[in-house]
């Protein structure tokens, strides 16, 4: 198993680590037993995601998928962000080892949950 350079870059220099104060949406997925927990925060203005941050407990792939997800959603509308699939994340990272694909699924789910949370507060 070897990570792509892109994965290593996001692991070594993760983008947007941290929490957002008064976020408009939070997505929390995973559990310690399976080895990955992701927490994604979004700030939304006029239906556009203006800021995204993450905190992740997990392996190199979990950290890299969270990091790139925050990059991918920034500037996107809620509808666009919602459509970002785990495949898109894998592509953006120049691939992930097969046994690490579940990390990309986790990142997709975390973002969907953050959006769900945002919508539940803005009905």
């Amino acid at each position: 198993m070897q990570y792509s350079e892109k994965v290593m870059d996001h692991f070594r220099n993760p983008r947007n680590v941290g929490e957002i104060e008064n976020p408009d949406g939070i997505g929390y997925v995973g559990n310690a037993a399976c080895g990955d927990i992701m927490e994604l925060y979004i700030k939304v203005e006029e239906n556009i995601i203006t800021d995204a941050k993450f905190k992740t407990f997990g392996c190199g792939a979990a950290i890299a998928t969270s990091s790139i997800m925050t990059e991918l959603v920034k500037g996107k509308t809620i509808e666009e962000a919602e459509k970002i699939s785990n495949k898109a994340i894998i592509e953006a990272l120049d691939g992930l080892p097969t046994i690490k694909r579940h990390c990309s699924v986790l990142a997709e789910e975390a973002m969907k949950k953050a959006i769900e949370d945002y919508r539940s507060k803005n009905v």
Binding site: P14, V17, Y28, A32, M38, K55, T56, F57
Partner: peptide
């Protein structure tokens, strides 16, 4: 290394 990873951890 431990500090850095802990700073990233939601736990």
């Amino acid at each position: 290394i431990v500090s850095r990873l802990r700073a990233m951890s939601p736990l």
